[in-house]
Computed example of a mutant assay.
Amino acid sequence: MKTYDIEVQRLKSLRHDNGMIEIGVDALVLPRALRDDQTTPTTRLRVPVEHARSLLILLKQQIAELDKLQPRSRRSGRC
């Protein structure tokens, strides 16, 4: 499995499409070499704090809009 270091440089867009939330970003993507002390390959996503805060706000807005589309009986959290 290939692993990468992904550094988000700019958030560009966020939208919901067919059950997926799509996030548009400008990002620096570099291949990552697996070190000896790592047991499993992991891709890392690095996000500046201000982008992380913006992303959290945008995700909350998108999820709230999705919840409005659910029938009232399914909004209570009980499945």
Rank of each mutant, 00 (worst) to 15 (best):
H51K: 04
D36P: 06
T42H: 05
T39N: 12
A52S: 09
V25A: 11
M20W: 13
R72S: 14
R35L: 10
T40M: 10
L69P: 00
A52P: 01
R32D: 01
R74H: 08
P48R: 07
L56F: 09
G77Q: 06
T43A: 06
G24E: 06
R32A: 05
Q38G: 01
I23K: 00
D67G: 03
G77A: 08
E65L: 08
S73V: 08
P48F: 07
A52D: 08
D36T: 13
P48E: 10
H51N: 10
Q62E: 11
A33Q: 15
A64L: 05
R44K: 11
E22R: 09
T40Q: 12
L55G: 02
H51M: 05
T42K: 15
S73Y: 08
R74I: 03
D36K: 13
S54R: 07
L58M: 07
R35D: 14
I63D: 01
S54M: 11
K68Y: 04
T42M: 13
G77D: 06
R44D: 09
L66D: 05
D26R: 15
R53M: 13
R75K: 12
I23D: 00
D37T: 06
Q62P: 00
L55T: 00
R74K: 15
R75V: 01
L56N: 07
T40H: 14
R53A: 11
L58E: 05
P48Q: 10
T42W: 04
E22H: 15
V47A: 02
R35C: 08
T42L: 14
K60D: 05
V25Q: 01
R75S: 03
E22F: 05
R32P: 00
S76L: 12
L30S: 13
I21S: 02
G77P: 02
A33R: 10
L56H: 10
S54Y: 01
S54V: 03
A52Q: 08
Q61Y: 04
L45E: 03
I57F: 07
Q38E: 15
E22D: 12
V29F: 06
M20N: 13
P48K: 11
A64H: 06
S76F: 13
L58S: 08
Q62G: 01
E65A: 12
K68Q: 11
V29D: 03
G77R: 06
D37Q: 11
G24T: 02
I23E: 00
L34C: 08
R53I: 09
A27R: 03
G19A: 07
L66P: 01
M20F: 12
V25S: 00
G77E: 05
I23R: 00
T43G: 03
D26W: 14
I57V: 14
R35E: 14
R46S: 07
V49K: 13
P48M: 04
I21R: 00
L30R: 13
D67N: 13
R74T: 05
M20Y: 10
R72T: 08
L45Y: 02
L59P: 00
S76V: 05
R35M: 11
Q38H: 04
I21V: 14
K60N: 07
E22S: 10
D37G: 03
H51A: 04
L66Y: 03
A27L: 06
I63W: 01
Q62M: 10
D26I: 15
I21Y: 01
D67F: 08
A27D: 02
L59Q: 01
Q70C: 03
I63S: 00
L58V: 04
V29K: 07
D26C: 09
L66W: 02
L59H: 02
A52Y: 03
K60T: 04
G24W: 03
P31N: 07
